[in-house]
């Protein structure tokens, strides 16, 4: 039982952390960021290289968050800012960005990097070992969701950005600088991707294709979650985590993976707006009733 719980925590953390940056950018800006995996990869590189240079891991992780955030800001100012509102063009451009980043890293650092060792060791429960760091990842995912919730509900930025998300025209006419909001949002999304990369860097092989493994789960989580960058991923991370843990434990990894995709297709068919849409519908009904 604690085995299954541990697996669920692993899956949930992986889904949430891989999706969170993408969810923020897609939810707030309607930009489909195909370079999301490469932002994650960049975070992993910064963290790994910094730690190798003697900086403590915690500080390196912080450095990746800031570094990828700044990189995101640059990408936004140079490229994305010209594409606000053009969802489908963003597919092409961010794909171009991902090609450039992946090959650029390959040229700069070669096809692989020496990986860090997972810190913190393991704890023994019921005669079985569990990685403490991975349990911490689960806690981090939840803390991150709470922090984002606070950012988007309790701050002026959050208020403005939610206004821009619902109706950019009206928000602008009320004096909200939507362009600045979008820039900030994009760089937060990038910084979150950087965090994910840095957090997973010590547990995985670091290479230019590092981001590839994150792309599919992150898209599925965002699709199932829908537009709301907070409610969406938390609910879909939970549901998908249960589904993939269950299938995986019963029939093996292949079905765990296939299950994710099938659930995604079914969810879009039944409720195109994902869990966020469902929650909104319910809350509207509740306030009316």
């Amino acid at each position: 039982m604690e085995d299954l719980l541990y697996q669920f925590m692993n899956n949930f953390a992986f889904l949430i952390l891989s999706a969170i940056g993408l969810a923020v950018i897609f939810g707030m800006m309607k930009i489909i960021n195909l370079a999301h995996g490469e932002f994650i990869m960049l975070g992993a590189y910064i963290a790994t290289l910094a730690t190798k240079a003697g900086i403590p891991l915690l500080l390196s992780i912080l450095l990746s968050v800031v570094g990828v955030g700044i990189f995101g800001l640059i990408v936004d100012r140079l490229i994305i800012s010209r594409l606000y509102g053009r969802t489908l063009d963003s597919v092409v451009v961010t794909w171009g960005v991902s090609l450039v980043m992946q090959q650029g890293i390959l040229i700069l650092f070669g096809p692989s990097l020496e990986t860090l060792s997972t810190p913190l060791g393991s704890i023994s429960i019921g005669g079985s070992d569990y990685s403490l760091y991975r349990i911490l990842l689960f806690v981090t995912a939840i803390v991150l969701l709470i922090l984002l919730y606070l950012l988007f509900t309790k701050t002026t930025f959050g208020l403005h950005s939610r206004a821009a998300m619902q109706n950019a025209e009206i928000a602008r006419s009320m004096g909200v600088n939507t362009n600045r909001i979008y820039s900030f949002t994009f760089s937060i999304g990038a910084a979150l991707a950087g965090l994910t990369g840095a957090l997973y860097a010590p547990t995985m092989a670091v290479s230019p294709t590092f981001g590839g493994g994150f792309l599919m789960p992150s898209f599925v989580t965002v699709i199932v979650g829908g537009a709301n960058p907070l409610i969406g991923p938390s609910l879909s991370g939970g549901v998908l985590g249960v589904v993939s843990t269950g299938l995986d434990a019963t029939w093996g990894t292949f079905f765990g993976r296939l299950g994710l995709l099938v659930v995604a297709i079914l969810v879009i068919r039944i409720m195109p707006l994902g869990f966020s849409g469902l929650v909104e519908k319910l809350s509207v009904r509740k306030s009316r009733g």
């Binding site: 490229i79 010209r82 594409l83 053009r86 063009d89 092409v92 451009v93 794909w95 171009g96 960005v97 991902s98 090609l99 450039v100 992946q102 090959q103 650029g104 390959l106 040229i107």
Partner: peptide
Amino acid sequence: EYALIILGLVLIVAILFVP
């Protein structure tokens, strides 16, 4: 080794300047 970089840049420039 710059093949994919050139390809990516061409696509970005194409979309940005010729929407």
